[in-house]
Amino acid sequence: MKQIINIAAKEFRDYFISPIAYIVISLFLVVTGWFFFSTFFLFDTADMRNFFSMLPIIFSFIIPAVTMRLFSEEMNVGSYEILLTMPVSFTDIAVGKFMAALLFSACMLLPTVSYPIFISFIGDVDAGPVIGGYLGATLLAGAFCSIGIFASSLTRNQIVAFIIGAAICFTLTILDQILFFIPSAITDVIAFLGADSHFQSISKGVIDSRDILYFLSVIFMGLFGTYLVMQEKN
């Protein structure tokens, strides 16, 4: 546990040492801010539904950019060798890096909390969907972080890691919109695998254990995949 914190703290600091953090956070805020507020006054309702409904698509490109360096860079520079010869287990490394990426995503989301606060001045905001939305966003970020870390562990090239990660995240996001092309016998199963519907139902303020379980199992599978890749490379 101590080692997880050590690794997470180091990776988290690393984000803010390099310019990546500031670029990614500003990009995220500009994109979400623009898309949200450009139509906000047209709808004339004091809620955050539009903001949350576009999060999965934005996250599926932003989060892999956040996680792409976590393993690829280490393998490219060779510091991976230093990391693995210190007394840390594979689990410590995978979970530590995951925690750092998740914490970073939370930092990215934090400034957007000002949106509901400002909206509450001009109208009545229903707290339920907002709290649910942020809970769902955190879970979604976790799931995508874990997928991004898995993608990063596969290759020493950060760009390849980004593309693999974004491809998986994007597929999960649009899965329930392409059910049309899928044989009707398995549509229920495929629909359940999509991330978007689980996220949207949490962000309505309905906290269902199935949705939470879905995100937790995606996180687990991503990290377990990373663990297996590390073991295979060893």
Binding site: D14, I17, S18, V77, G78, S79, I82, T85
Partner: peptide, 13 residues
Amino acid sequence: GYLPESAPLYHNM
């Protein structure tokens, strides 16, 4: 304690 060849350290720290 291990010193790898060409000491690959974290270059941004």
